[in-house]
Design a protein around this nucleic acid. Structure first.
Lengths: 103, 103
DNA sequence: TGCATATATGTCATATTTGACATACACTTA
DNA sequence: TAAGTGTATGTCAAATATGACATATATGCA
């Protein structure tokens, strides 16, 4: 993994693998994180395109501004389930999600 | 929603929405469930293609046979996170997952 | 029939994720 | 400068998902 990418993840609460050791990140773990980050990006993009601020979007999905911020920051404490629910709430289709995973 | 589909979900622990009322299933909720079920199917398919039984696969992902069964049954108690981790463990790529979501 | 293998279902203590809240930070504009 | 707006970060009790376990069911085969 590139040094720059590693640094980025460390700050977001990602403790991957048993040893929380970024040197031992398996390819699957990296893919898993990459996909979440991809969804994060799509979420932020979509929210902004809909001209919603984090507070209003949080209300829309019955969550909180802080959690929206964490979603968009690619925080490790956010599940795929929440990301996907959020994207669907913004009107994303299955096709959109399939695309978003890989962006 | 079709009657047949509704019946199927009811048996798998899906209590959707506040009222657990299948008559009030929003399109987003339905999409959410559909996607999980799609991943379930792909998972089962991939596992069998790799000639693993549920016990051995459970060991591979450090889980249990019962949870693998629940994953493949499309149980409501299974998260996207676990489904995706499992698929990645079977060698699925981001592309594969993007496809699997929509099958 | 009994035995082996594979899968399904239910329960539960533990682990993780959640929304809520407080508060900090960044930026604009008056 | 202060006030307003939007976003980020940390904490925590409650909600949800988890692996482990027991047990049930199904199928094949001696």
């Amino acid at each position: 993994m590139k040094q720059s990418k590693r640094k980025k993840l460390e700050t977001k609460g990602w403790k991957v693998g048993a040893a929380a050791d970024f040197l031992n990140l398996t390819p699957e773990e990296e893919l898993f994180i990459d996909m979440k980050i991809s969804l994060s990006r799509s979420l932020k993009e979509l929210r902004i395109r809909k001209r919603l601020n984090q507070v209003d979007f949080a209300k829309l999905i019955k969550s909180s501004q802080s959690r929206v911020a964490k979603m968009e920051a690619g925080s490790a404490s956010v599940s795929f389930d929440l990301l996907i629910k959020s994207l669907l709430a913004l009107g994303a289709s299955e096709k959109d999600l399939a695309k978003a995973i890989r962006l």
